[in-house]
Design a protein around this nucleic acid. Structure first.
Length: 254
DNA sequence: AACCTTTGCAACCGCCTCCAC
DNA sequence: CGTGGAGGCGGTTGCAAAGGT
């Protein structure tokens, strides 16, 4: 445990980043509490008074050398949409299929994406064609209608209300509360259904929809089994979902 | 140019799961 | 088998930058 009276919060400084990278280099990227503890000691020089959680988050979301920066590629965007429709808001699982992207990044992307979609709906305009294609998934077909723009990441009640506020302020009459709650229910059903049936159903889906993605092996071997984006057990069950090739990983092979 | 709104993203919070003891 | 700690995950918040008026 870090000395609690001095636990730092908020944005990380360059020095903190540097220290964290050093400690991770020394101790690996698993023992976050240990890293937090050791880095908080006076013997560690300038102390890094962050919690283990905070260290982990900073490393995973920002400092990890395998991270891609910058905009999502169209392939990544479509894969996110496809997997979200399949798995729901299981961001970390989705992130495992997009090496170099973090769950946080994908989550943020999704929220932005859905916000745009909500605005499109509000304006009564058609959904952009690529997005529509991606969203035209098993779940929406089985629901017999378009996926609601409310079945987003962060789809808690409070968030829904926030979106309602954002989206509906001018057009409250157009989208009633009943519609909204119906959408929420539908999306939850879809999500559950996808979770239950995703394995079989999506064999076909994936073969059809994302076969354009290159099938590659994970060349990144940073810290071996302790690395991010390792194939988990579930991933092994869905080998049909390809990994996106990532040239960045080549620099982690020793 | 100033102000307001929107967008993107880093970071935190709280809950859950796993595992060692 | 129960418990506690550590890590993981999803949801949420806050803020800076960009864009619009």
């Amino acid at each position: 445990m870090v000395q609690s009276d001095e636990v730092r919060k908020g944005p990380w400084t360059e020095q903190e980043d540097f220290k964290l990278v050093s400690f991770v280099g020394l101790f690996g990227d698993r023992r976050w509490d240990f890293i937090a503890k050791v880095s908080g000691l006076k013997v560690a020089g300038d102390r890094l008074n962050r919690t283990g959680k905070s260290c982990r988050l900073r490393w995973v979301n920002y400092l990890h050398p395998g991270l891609k920066r910058g905009k999502m590629t169209p392939h990544e965007e479509r894969l996110v949409l496809e997997l979200q429709s399949k798995w729901g808001n299981r961001w970390s699982r989705i992130a495992r299929k997009l090496p170099g992207r973090t769950d946080n990044e994908i989550k943020n992307y999704w929220r932005t994406h859905m916000r745009k979609k909500a605005q499109d709906k509000k304006k009564g305009s058609s959904v952009p064609s690529t997005e529509h294609h991606a969203m035209n998934s098993q779940a929406s077909k089985e629901a017999g209608e378009e996926i609601s723009f409310y079945d987003t990441g962060g789809s808690t009640i409070s968030n829904q209300k926030k979106q309602i506020k954002q989206v509906g302020e001018e057009h409250e009459q157009e989208i009633s509360m009943d519609d909204i709650w119906k959408d929420i229910d539908l999306s939850e059903e879809n999500s559950l259904h996808n979770e239950d049936t995703g394995c079989n159903n999506n064999n076909n889906n994936n073969n059809n929809n994302i076969s354009y993605l290159p099938k590659t092996s994970q060349s990144w071997e940073y810290n071996s089994t302790d690395s991010l984006w390792v194939m988990d057990a579930e991933s092994m069950l869905f080998p049909e979902v390809p990994m996106i090739d990532d040239p960045y990983f080549s620099c982690y092979t020793n």
